[in-house]
Design a protein around this nucleic acid. Structure first.
Lengths: 340, 340
DNA sequence: TGAAATAATGTAAACGGTTACAGTAAACGG
DNA sequence: CCGTTTACTGTAACCGTTTACATTATTTCA
């Protein structure tokens, strides 16, 4: 019994204004001149009739959707707020719409990606649900994409926007070692194949190596960059009476650092005296955790903004490839042992 | 030079499988029986041709978009992560898409709402950009909507999902007064016409009244439920040498509470000894702020989930109106003065 | 001044699906 | 055994725009 009121169409406007639909269309899209008097008449009629162009009809005829898609693994991290904010701001400015969808490696067998060429003009890909093969297919069919926190597979040259991970992590972990004398540093890593996590692990390992500390598999836990999971795995780890000793935790991201801190608290460890904690991202709450979190400032909102801008460059055929790597910066606070 | 490879259409599939397009359509939508052998053939052909139905064509013909929209004032609050997560989960389960857009009262003059009947099948409205008149128009045209953290204008009967604000705020503020002896409680409110903010202010005032404390206009600041703005206004307030005295801050939401704490810190106030702080929402980081934040737990993810489910009820014509108010609960932590 | 460019508009064919209508063959019911 | 349902399929109109092509009137300028 849906009675979505027979909406007013471009023909109604045309008739009412005494012009052809083509003229109305041209006026709406401003892609061909229209005489001043007709323009005025159309303006009047359109507001009078409360005419709103029907998106689907438009999309079908013009073969574009005016929608861009953001594909995420999930929505389990406060990290996404600044990212979304950056993305949405430029999408809005361009008068496009934004579809947000989640899709991850495990979804892949069950269903095709919820967004793609059939319902968007381009994709911001921050998901491991699209494997390299998918990216290759999409690229060869000319579908615009920008990778976010992930770099292009070789030879595809898909533009990407990421942040500097390895060197900064190396420095931060080395700080833990050299300044605070930590030597048993647990790494709470993220999703196994997520590039940030992988690269942060590289930085972690290279800092250990550079300081003569052997890498110990047992000091790596899988926190998935999720607060609750990080809590869970560290809690399990600590609840096991004979777990290996450790004196610091490098958590791959700030949100998971909360889970880490929670587990440490519950097991009566003092931060940073017993166990130092460092994170990554510098989310808004980081300075106000107890203790304030030493972390790496990642320009997440800029990542969203720049990635989206590059996607629009692609849409406008301004060739734009190459990998943008935004700089990061260590923010020293108390959780690593530094003074306030 | 866009060459979005001439995508394969339903006609290609039909030809290849030796059936009519109608049959293919029926098979895809499973809305009419198709013989087993044809079904199998179609399955084969469709995967072979990598056929994906063109969304716009579908939308146009079927007069539905399979998209629902979430309209927000902005994306400046960590609060939106659980909300989005709840919404997205049910949207995905229903195999719909989700458009996220921002629109607020000030946008209203500049442009029409970015989402509405022209590009979605229904709206989750968490925005003051749509005024009561807009809601009335949309409702009379039969457009499905569910209000989030906002109740229906009188006589419209738009379903809504909110959380209990007044009573719980009354209790919490009263706790500050009766247990911790606070009497000069500053209220960092949210957007002026946002219902949560208004109702929390009502609870705040009724608690003052019930305890014989006069309401003081000067103790109300406009933090807009935004971290940075809350910091800014409180910082300005404190920087004014002759500001009125206060011994507590009730911040309308946790994210802004971070800004409040930051300003207090910078001005050397001790929390809670000099100034107690309480928030609202119980965001993930709240237990780990310094000091841990006393706040009200709001089931934000559930709000998103339930609101979206109700919207789908509407889409499926299962009449669903009335206002759902989810219960809230005070979480006592140290920032109000309670012991750890 | 006449040919060519430009401005303003209209006509009608797409765009890629859905679905009302119609038809045929097989199964059913009394 | 025959009228009626049911299962399956096809034809073609339609959804509401955009845009290629065509037309006419007006400028431009060599």
């Amino acid at each position: 019994m849906t009675r979505r009121s027979s909406s007013v169409t471009i023909r109604d406007v045309a008739r009412q204004a005494g012009v052809s639909v083509a003229t109305v269309s041209r006026f709406i899209n401003r892609n061909a001149p229209v005489s001043a008097e007709v323009a005025e008449r159309l303006n009047q009629v359109m507001t009078e009739l409360r005419y709103v162009p029907h998106a689907a009809a438009r999309n079908l005829a013009s073969r574009k959707t005016r929608v861009i898609g953001l594909l995420l693994n999930n929505l389990h991290n406060d990290f996404f707020v600044p990212l979304l904010n950056g993305v949405e701001a430029v999408v809005r400015k361009k008068e496009y719409n934004l579809i947000v969808a989640t899709y991850h490696a495990n979804s892949r067998n069950a269903m095709p990606p919820p967004i793609g060429p059939h319902n968007t003009d381009g994709l911001l890909v921050f998901s491991d649900g699209l494997i390299d093969e998918d990216l290759a297919n999409l690229t060869t069919s000319g579908f615009p994409m920008v990778l976010v926190h992930r770099t292009s597979p070789p030879n595809l040259g898909i533009p990407s926007v990421t942040v500097e991970n390895i060197e900064i992590t190396h420095q931060l972990v080395e700080h833990l070692i050299q300044v605070h004398g930590k030597r048993r540093i647990l790494f709470m890593r993220g999703p196994l194949h997520q590039e940030d996590s992988v690269r942060r692990e590289m930085g972690y390992k290279s800092a250990l190596a550079a300081n003569g500390i052997p890498f110990d598999e047992k000091l790596v836990l899988n926190g998935e960059f999720e607060r609750d999971i990080a809590f869970q795995v560290l809690n399990d780890f600590l609840s096991n009476g004979k777990h290996v000793a450790f004196d610091a935790v490098f958590t791959g991201d700030d949100d998971a650092a909360i889970g880490v801190m929670k587990a440490l608290h519950e097991h009566k460890y003092r931060i940073p005296e017993d166990v130092a904690v460092i994170g990554f991202d510098d989310l808004g709450f980081a300075p106000f955790l107890n203790p304030p979190l030493t972390t790496v400032r990642a320009p997440t909102e800029s990542v969203g903004k720049i990635a989206t801008e590059r996607l629009f460059e692609l849409l406008e055929n301004q060739a734009s490839n190459g990998a943008v790597v935004l700089p990061t910066e260590i923010i020293f606070r108390r959780s690593c042992g530094c003074p306030a």
